[in-house]
Design a protein around this nucleic acid. Structure first.
Lengths: 206, 206
DNA sequence: TATTGTGAAGTGGTTCACAGCT
DNA sequence: AGCTGTGAACCACTTCACAATA
């Protein structure tokens, strides 16, 4: 199978979210056009995205909602639970801990280096001393690590997570992490987004 | 001038961040190669990105750090202060309020519909009743609106912000907002990022 | 008639490679 | 010799267009 484009994965996730939030509404089938609206794509794009993994629709009819949702969860690998450790019990980390605990991402540990935070609770999880990270992960590995520490510490934390067997990182620090090629990184960078808006608004006054 | 690619803007922001955090270190010039490492790009890509806006370097030498940073701030439109209103005083909004207040993005208002939150303080800013949004924006416009409310309310909030003159939106809700073509939207979607990691980790166990 | 699945064409961003300065 | 600036080549994602099917 050819390499899947990152943009395709992003859209598949949007299609799935649409199917999941609109499934109770009676409609048994959806067209590629409707999915396109949800995913910010054309109908042709939707069909191409899906055809990459198989033929899930019926010509002249569309896609069966429940069936396609199931296929998308399977394609995205959402059939299992991912174990997530959170390093840096700041606000972004808290936002993550708060959301999405249901959808297959289980937060199994929250760590911080700040003594003031250690021992505190973050959404029902005790914040542990980051010094324990390696020992804890050796005893009970995780799939995904969330880097929620300041920029200066981010690469160090990433290195420790990767050495401890984590193979996916969600990075909130405003810089690019250097990781081995078999480790996946997704960045959430508020500075970047704000700069992007600034650029889009060039020359416009309020 | 041709349309600038979103990926180019993203990298320009990364180059700038690199220059700003490493400017005190004696080096007066940087090469496109060094900038490429910071921005996750090749040296050729860096030069193309910059050449799009002018010739800022010297052949055989490189780019003057201070000078290039200044140019990048100018290109990105960071020379002025952007007035930002935050709707939804949740954790992501709090994360935003906490960071970056220095770099040209001034939070001028925080709103929520939840009576329990109204009147509370978020990083020194009083949370106001979202019902006042239109009146406040009419009296004192904003450039950027942050949509930090649940998915079901997101489009409604976006509509109200756009009607009140906001021309840039930072959307934390896990869906695509429909906005007029002259309004810029950037999405921060944790669900999407986690799904992306799930896909990248397909078939791998811990 | 409605809508999918897909090869072919199109578009646009990235990489190459080298001329041009310092 | 070192490094930028840039046209040309390349590559990958998107759109088109239409045969296939309900």
């Amino acid at each position: 199978m050819r390499q899947v484009a990152p943009s395709t994965v992003r859209r598949l996730s949007l299609y799935l979210h649409f199917l999941e939030t609109n499934s109770g509404e009676g409609e048994v089938t959806v067209s590629s056009g409707a999915l396109g609206v949800a995913g910010g794509a054309t109908s042709a794009q939707v069909r191409k995205d899906l055809s990459f993994f198989g033929s899930f629709g019926r010509r002249g009819v569309g896609y069966a909602v429940r069936d396609l949702a199931e296929h998308l969860r399977d394609i995205l690998g959402l059939g299992r639970t991912f174990r997530v450790v959170l390093v840096g019990a700041g606000r972004l980390g808290a936002a993550l801990a708060h959301s999405d605990r249901e959808r297959g991402f289980a937060i199994v540990g929250v760590y911080d280096t700040d003594a003031a935070r250690i021992g505190a609770e973050l959404d029902g999880l005790a914040v542990r001393d980051a010094a324990r990270l390696e020992a804890d992960l050796a005893a009970s590995p995780a799939d995904i690590g969330v880097v929620g520490v300041p920029a200066a510490e981010a690469q160090g934390v990433a290195d420790r997570l990767v050495r401890s067997g984590v193979r996916g990182l969600l990075n909130f620090a405003p810089l690019l992490l250097a990781v081995p090629p078999d480790v996946a990184v997704r960045n959430v960078n508020l500075t970047l987004e704000l700069d992007g808006l600034a650029f889009a608004l060039r020359g416009r006054s309020h």
